[in-house]
Amino acid sequence: MTEWHEKRHGLEQRIADWTSRTGFTISVRDDLGHLNLRGDLGSPGFLAAAEETIGQPLPQAPNTISDGDSTIFWLGPDEWLILTPAEKAANLADQLESSLSNQHAATNNVSGGQIALTLTGERVREVLAKGCALDFHPQVFTEGRCAQSGLARANVTIGSIGGDNKFLVIVRRSFADYLLAWLDGVA
């Protein structure tokens, strides 16, 4: 029996088939689990309970990331995406459900529905600019910033994390094949 968190999508093959290119590399982050968290910052106790369970702060400023054992993206005034080691995702989802059970909150483990990609290299900002209207200048899209937008014709969550020219791009599973084909084309 396969482990619960094991990703099956065949995307590595697509990347392996690419001809090598300079200044741009991409990897599929099967090591990450994805949780979608909803909650009301105005409700007493929500923030404390959530942060205690996750063990790090929830980013409250729009378009920012909180980095720690988990990487937490601000998605909206009451919505976060928590990327956490895949093997811990289900457990964390359960813990959040129980610690927030007396709150108006919602947790969804969406590890199976999303694909996270790490894009690195000196050309990464240029490649992103070919499909996204956000400003990827290194002094604008600085480390720790994130945004939801469109990349080519797919909705994505993009975050600059872990290095100057390093980005996490999260896309819905059903769009991943298209997005990789597009990245292959423009990169």
């Binding site: 729009p62 209207a133 956000l134 939801q148 937008s149 469109g150």
Partner: peptide
Amino acid sequence: MFLIECPWCGERAETEF
């Protein structure tokens, strides 16, 4: 392509809305 200011996310391209 217009820019529209989302009260939360700031100015973004019209295509996001």
